[in-house]
């Protein structure tokens, strides 16, 4: 291979990488980010989107180039090059993807950790007498919060979510509120404990980038902190019957004051507000 062609390839590679990075960082395919998770998620998305774009455009380019450059011209006879393999090339394209994939795996592990995904699910359940009353948590993000030790303001706001065909019910143990919509204060950690009555459903808020199946007989947990006030859809994402497509609710994120007003208007039992 001559020097100019190596330079040309290098140049093309650099353009490809820069172009892919640009697309990955600047093309926005996601809805607004309204939770702490969402910001972290979007960071991961941009990295994966950049790597994906570089790879895809590179391979697309190679295919198109080969098809044009090495196409059989009219009247042309004879075979192509007798290349049966090339050990160093093959080692190269085994090693590079392995490193890329390893990087992606470690990076997404880090992201998942920052989302609270690696916190043991049944954290805090052990040294309590209610331990046998407390059901095992089977999956989710973040630790299960117990109602009894949430009286201080810094602790998570616990909400019990029940899914049934075709609605979500939200129970606030603190004020004994039952609501068809989820109300949460902005900036406050919320801990959902989810369980289904009939079939499997899934709790999804696209603007929060979180989802958790809601399973009969196997409670799950989902912790999040909303960061933008507004009203967002809660979508059921697991086929649960004929009306699955209309199984929706909403989460209302309010400033703390507005939330407190809502809470005291609805609370059945008086609780000490912090």
């Amino acid at each position: 291979m001559s020097i100019p062609s190596i330079i040309r390839i290098l140049l093309l590679g650099i353009i490809l990488v820069l172009g892919g990075l640009w697309i990955g960082q600047n093309v926005n395919l996601l809805p607004v980010d309204a939770s702490l998770n969402a910001a972290v998620y979007d960071e991961l998305f941009r990295v994966l989107f950049s790597i994906g774009t570089i790879l895809f455009l590179g391979i697309l380019g190679l295919v198109l180039f080969s098809l044009i450059k090495f196409r059989r011209r009219p009247g042309q006879q004879g075979d192509g090059l007798a290349l049966e393999g090339n050990l160093s090339l093959e080692v190269f394209w085994t090693a590079v993807p392995a490193v890329v994939v390893l990087f992606i795996g470690l990076y997404s592990f880090d992201i998942y950790d920052r989302m609270g995904g690696m916190v043991p699910l049944n954290h805090g359940a052990h040294d309590h007498q209610q331990m046998d009353m407390q059901q095992n948590i089977w999956g989710g993000i973040g630790a299960n919060v117990e109602v009894s030790n949430t009286d201080n303001a810094l602790a998570a706001l616990p909400v019990e979510v029940t899914a049934l065909q075709y609605a979500f019910l939200f129970h606030y143990p603190k004020g004994d509120i039952i609501s068809g919509e989820l109300h949460v204060p902005k900036g406050q950690l919320v801990s959902l404990r989810l369980e289904a009555k009939d079939v499997i459903h899934a709790f999804w808020v696209p603007e929060f980038r979180i989802k958790q199946d809601v399973i009969p007989g196997q409670p799950t947990v989902l912790n999040f902190t909303a960061t933008k006030t507004g009203r967002y859809s809660i979508v059921c994402a697991e086929l649960c019957g004929p009306y699955h497509g209309s199984m929706r609710s909403a989460v209302v994120v309010d400033e703390a004051d507005d939330y407190n007003t809502w809470f005291s208007n609805n609370a059945k039992t008086t609780v000490s507000e912090a």
Partner: peptide, 29 residues
């Protein structure tokens, strides 16, 4: 996650091999 990601490696090898099969061919389109 890790196990699944690694499937991309042998899969990738196959694709690069096909690309190299195209390279320098006399391809009937």
């Amino acid at each position: 996650t890790i196990a699944t990601s690694f499937i991309a490696v042998p899969t990738g090898i196959k694709f690069f091999n096909w690309l190299a099969t195209l390279w320098g061919g006399r391809i009937s389109l």
